[in-house]
Design a protein around this nucleic acid. Sequence first.
DNA 1: ATCAACCTAAATTTCGAAGATCTATTGACG
DNA 2: CGTCAATAGATCTTCGAAATTTAGGTTGAT
Lengths: 243, 243
Amino acid sequence: MPPAATVDDLTEPTLNASVCNLLRADIVACRLMPNERLRLEALRERYGVGGSPVREALMRLQGEGLVELEQHKGFRVSAVSRERLLDLMRTRIEIEGLALRWSIEHGGVEWEADLLGAFHRLANRHKTASHDGTIDADWSREHRAFHTALVAACGSPTLLGIRENLFDRTTRYVALSILSRTTPRNDAAEHEQIMRAALNRDAARAVALTGEHIERTMARVMKSLGERSAETPPQRANGRGAR
Amino acid sequence: MPPAATVDDLTEPTLNASVCNLLRADIVACRLMPNERLRLEALRERYGVGGSPVREALMRLQGEGLVELEQHKGFRVSAVSRERLLDLMRTRIEIEGLALRWSIEHGGVEWEADLLGAFHRLANRHKTASHDGTIDADWSREHRAFHTALVAACGSPTLLGIRENLFDRTTRYVALSILSRTTPRNDAAEHEQIMRAALNRDAARAVALTGEHIERTMARVMKSLGERSAETPPQRANGRGAR
DNA sequence: ATCAACCTAAATTTCGAAGATCTATTGACG
DNA sequence: CGTCAATAGATCTTCGAAATTTAGGTTGAT
């Protein structure tokens, strides 16, 4: 059983916000596996809270596309499939490209400085795929921060919100891929190229490189996804083991 | 007091889903005005349900950007401003254009037929700005259906979901504009041009026309928005009248 | 007169239990 | 032996009340 952070670990003003963040993190990192049923009672125990905060958090995550709800049948972690991954990645390439283009247009010195800083932090955080098969949480955070810094000057909260959501949803697939085979690719060079193009205000090149960056990730993930199963396994719901 | 549909009017399997749809409709149509406080007790009465379904619905609508939540201070209908409108519209132009391009690429005969049908229904539904200042609900539905038909063959559920959300959020501004001055513009011709370009597989032209279509709408809305107030009014929360 | 602390009132947030719905099992019948 | 219906168990959904938190007004001291 994976260790479950409890609500006390976060400093959120309300329980439902805490639960929402914890759940999102658990789902994105695949500590809660795709298609896994999310029973209310189990989640209540896991996070040590009542039913209302859990349900409210699940409702929000449904809107984010991380959980799915069948009326009167309960919540599940969103299923994964090649088809969905392709859809997600293609959309993300466009959104990420658009945000990057706008960011390059509007970004000033402050943006450049933050970007350089984020890259430096990322480059010095060695991507050590840790022993237990889960990716280094620190590297993951820095990686995310770097890509966020790229588009930070985009100027559109709406677009950034969409981008962030797509990032979460694709990260979940990456986490899934890492769980199955632990050979992290070295994309430090790619990140530097993207940054260089952005700082040179070469939007076309930066967008193209980002697209390829995402596509390469997708190709790897797609491969490992095929190895487990073409479609999402039915994941037979067992009560507490066959009797 | 605007007439409030109750939960019985919808055939949803659960109360929270019904409340969510009713709330969304009320907010998009500005029957619940921007920045208006959404007290739990008031909504309980309005829809005749308990507190849990209402809260869960509000959580989902927060994810959709239609309501805002300040922790421990309650929900409000999302505020409006020129700045937000500009952001929303610019993003929507890109998203709508992208979806349309993909739709033109993948669309088959079925798509063409549905699009023609949607256009015909829209063209024959006269845009009568009804007496009370609210726009004709039928026309609004057909208009929405037409734009949906344009992008229906896009092939990306993810992108379509984003598009639908942006459509809702911009429609709210349009509704606000219509409330203040009742001079509906005649955009039947624009719709036909867009459709023609799409059916001719002229993606560039279709996308450009759609962009202009949205921009024209934005210009009108922006104007009427400026007339009311530059920023969203603080909307002093009165208890039950000054004593 | 001004400011701070306290106290009251309203609203949100959360909990636990009752009501409704689905799933699985059991037993009867063709 | 297979199919179907009824029942029992589990789970989701909803309600109403208790617990926290915020906002506003009052009192008292400087």
